[in-house]
Design a protein around this nucleic acid. Sequence first.
DNA 1: ATTTACAATGTTAACGTTATCACAACAGAA
DNA 2: TTCTGTTGTGATAACGTTAACATTGTAAAT
Lengths: 350, 350
Amino acid sequence: MTQPRRRSHRKQPVTIKEVAEKAGVSQMTVSRVINRQGLVKEATREKVEQTISELHYRPNLMARRLAGGKSLFIGLVYHNPSQGYLSKLLVGALNACRDGGHHLVLEDLSSEDGELNPQAVIDRLRQSGLDGIILTPPISNNPDVIAALQKEGIAYVGIAPGATDPDGLRVEIDDAEAADSMTQYLIDQGHRRIGFVMGHKDHAASISRYNGFKLAMKRNNLEINPDHVETGAFTYYSGIEAGRKILTTKTPPTAIFASNDDMAAGMIAAARGFGFKVPKDISVVGFDDTDLATTFWPQLTTVRQPIAQMAEKSVDLLSSYIHNDDTTEIENRRLLEFSIVKRDSAIPPS
Amino acid sequence: MTQPRRRSHRKQPVTIKEVAEKAGVSQMTVSRVINRQGLVKEATREKVEQTISELHYRPNLMARRLAGGKSLFIGLVYHNPSQGYLSKLLVGALNACRDGGHHLVLEDLSSEDGELNPQAVIDRLRQSGLDGIILTPPISNNPDVIAALQKEGIAYVGIAPGATDPDGLRVEIDDAEAADSMTQYLIDQGHRRIGFVMGHKDHAASISRYNGFKLAMKRNNLEINPDHVETGAFTYYSGIEAGRKILTTKTPPTAIFASNDDMAAGMIAAARGFGFKVPKDISVVGFDDTDLATTFWPQLTTVRQPIAQMAEKSVDLLSSYIHNDDTTEIENRRLLEFSIVKRDSAIPPS
DNA sequence: ATTTACAATGTTAACGTTATCACAACAGAA
DNA sequence: TTCTGTTGTGATAACGTTAACATTGTAAAT
């Protein structure tokens, strides 16, 4: 029995021309209706819109972009990201690219040893021929890379670039304020002894989050016990290690704020190892709301960054920057909203 | 002499026309070189290729597709995937699309309740206007969706579709053989009492993996204790639950094979809860080699699926299927290699 | 009634590529 | 020599849309 290998005959999509004919107007009028440039009489607009939905017309993105000439090649540059972070980034960037008619190209700069070699990054990007580049942490807060990009005249946006390059295009959340809010949440629950696990020093966000924590503690006249603050590397294992230190102090904290979810999960594992029940004996909260936060049990109370949305905004920002006609000043910074996601790993102290 | 007015001083991307002029040939010849249609004299081809790299020319995808080229819109359809799986999938698909000049469009069919509504999937895909579709598990093994796609004449590839649609385009690993190998690995280490955690019944792979496990056990004349076999839902928590049952049996196994990494991690957490040391007292292995496998501690011994490569092959397969001129029979199934990744969560029994 | 202004629509020419067919060059066959 | 292919190459017309400019209608101002 030979299976029929029939080529799917694609029905021709409806074009603007057909819509125009059926509606009895010119193509341009239809185009105007689609693009909402208010220069069309109400009655005409309605007629055209009705015809559009009757014929199930959908504008051809390719043609649109070709004619408009606004189609870009956008590079997404990353270095050893967590997969949860990467997948959200990709989904956001890809959707924004689809809507904007752009094309996303991946530039994976990950290295075995986890080290970031700025020169390699720069060479790669110079070669790429991309119209614009999205820089993710920690590349976004590498001054060498930024400087080289500026020198080459390549357009870029930094995601969470921290203090680096304050005038460049950037998309971020207020890490300090987010950490402050989360700390306040723990304090409001009644916690007084709160520990903190800092993230990797290469990431600008690490410092900001710690600052936010300190600020909230100070505002509430709470003391930070230096033995309850450790530095990790954003990994599960470093969370375990931090836990081993913090949890064996004479009077361990009743709550611990880890700078990301992986470390929070590691912290919980360490706590269990020492016989603590989480959250009954000790509350643990994280940051990022990665997949792990809900994979894990108990599910993590954490800070959600709108990562996909950040990627979308990055694409939009790049696009308007590149197409900007130099006469108008465009917004160059985009601050997005974080949120505290309350799940099961933090409760009032008993 | 008067150059048509350029929009602004911004550098326009290099076009095929400029390449043609500089190389002293017609646009068509350049086009032929790009598309590797062997009708160009060697000398000409070299000259054109050199010009292309000198000018850093990159064909405009939009124009290419508009002109009726081979550029495809390929949809990647997913339903509540793990983020590790998704990000690898995206990276692979995106890179293959870049190389093939295709365009990747995401179709996120995830639902709050985790239920898959075939009708919604079908409606969405019918509307999409995509040239081809990549189906990921568990959508790839949903007979309703497959049947509808066939009826609509939409091209598709299934990733790990199991027994569903044996004649369709498919990319997969041999799940049964992989599970068999892993089981054999445990047996070779000296384990005799081995437990198994099955995956969600919606995934065809769940059955195959269990079959592979049974086969290896039987081949080695080992008995499977029904109390050491539980069914989970591919989640961390279901791993904990399975652990609670398996680990409290009279003589618990010395090794447990979980059908994915999340459940393996949950199993380890449960084991710790009952005072087992992992891997000293009990070995636990997983499947998939997701991010979690290395995030977690101890790092998971697991089966690696080449997920990114599977996505690449899917794109390639779709592309050659769609462009196939009906005369040649093309390969419609692609079996990729798995590998056993030996890390720290499994050692010989003590 | 005539001008003026602007709103509403239409016309034409891109946009960057490939398909199609035409043509040139050059071989071998008659 | 002339004819007949074959192999390169070029000219031109799409592809579906929007930009830029041209034209028409219409109401207010003179």
